[in-house]
Amino acid sequence: MGLPHLEKCCCFFDLQTGNIILGCINAFLSFCLFVAMIVAAVEIGAMERDTASELGLFKGDESGEAGEAILLDAQLSGLYAIAVILVFMFLAKLLFDVFFVIGVIMERKGIIKAYYIMWTVFMILSSFTFFLNWKYWGVKTIMSEVVYLCLNFYSVLVCHSYYVQLNMREEV
């Protein structure tokens, strides 16, 4: 038993057009998140520099303020590292989205299959992250994450259905 096979995307687009639309939307959102992560990394880097300069003032001081400043600097360093990793992750996602749209237009099964596998893994990791951390989030965040996961699942279904359709077309 496999995934359900869809005949249309959003009830009125054919699968190729639906995949192009979903790929373009994903590319646009990946680009927006890529830019947002660059901005966040720059802001965190600036805060880290400011904290480092404040640490220079407290070097000889053994009070609690110096310890708090060191702890803040360590936390900002971790946030900066995560922001930089996310920049590269969203850049890779943007490139995957662009290659996917090109692959759908050119009907390249290998590109579509690679994107399908990448998107499935990305969705599974997002689901695990959601289910591990849902109790720490607010209602709005939980609802937006549920909508995000549902849209991801639908995108995977449309991508898989188009891949199966291309395979069936070749067999005939």
Rank of each mutant, 00 (worst) to 15 (best):
F88G: 13
E62W: 02
F34M: 11
M118I: 05
G64S: 12
Q165L: 09
I102A: 09
F88Y: 13
S127M: 09
N133E: 09
C11L: 09
A69D: 05
E48R: 14
G110S: 14
I44V: 12
R169Y: 04
M47I: 00
E171M: 12
C32D: 09
F131Y: 11
I112N: 15
W134M: 15
L29H: 03
K135G: 08
L125P: 00
Q16I: 03
V172T: 06
A41W: 07
C11Y: 06
L57V: 15
A81R: 06
A69L: 15
A74Q: 11
R108G: 02
Y154R: 05
L157M: 14
E65S: 08
T120H: 08
A46P: 00
A114Q: 06
A40H: 01
H5G: 01
G110N: 10
F99C: 14
R108D: 13
E54D: 14
E7G: 14
K59R: 14
I21A: 11
L33M: 10
M123R: 00
G78P: 01
D50W: 03
Q75S: 13
R169A: 11
I38E: 04
A69F: 05
L6A: 10
C9K: 02
G23L: 07
V87H: 04
M123H: 02
M47P: 00
G56W: 01
A41N: 07
M89R: 01
C11E: 05
C32S: 14
L95N: 06
D14C: 14
G2R: 09
A46Q: 10
S30Q: 04
F12Y: 12
F13D: 15
G56Q: 08
V101L: 03
R108T: 10
L132N: 07
S30T: 04
W119A: 15
V84C: 10
S127V: 07
F128W: 02
I20V: 12
L15F: 02
G2F: 03
V35I: 15
V104Y: 04
F58E: 04
M118W: 13
I112Y: 06
F88E: 08
M123N: 05
L55E: 06
I25A: 10
S127L: 13
V172W: 02
C150D: 02
F31S: 12
Y115T: 05
L149R: 07
V39P: 00
Y148G: 10
Y136M: 11
L3N: 12
L71P: 00
E54H: 11
M89T: 13
L33G: 10
W134Q: 13
D61G: 07
C159V: 15
D14L: 08
V101C: 05
I20Q: 08
F130Q: 09
A46E: 11
V84Y: 01
A81H: 03
L132Q: 03
K109R: 15
G67C: 01
N19V: 04
L166H: 02
S63P: 01
E54P: 00
K135N: 13
E145C: 08
A46C: 09
L71I: 04
V121H: 04
F28G: 15
R169G: 00
S127P: 01
K113R: 15
E62Y: 05
L72G: 10
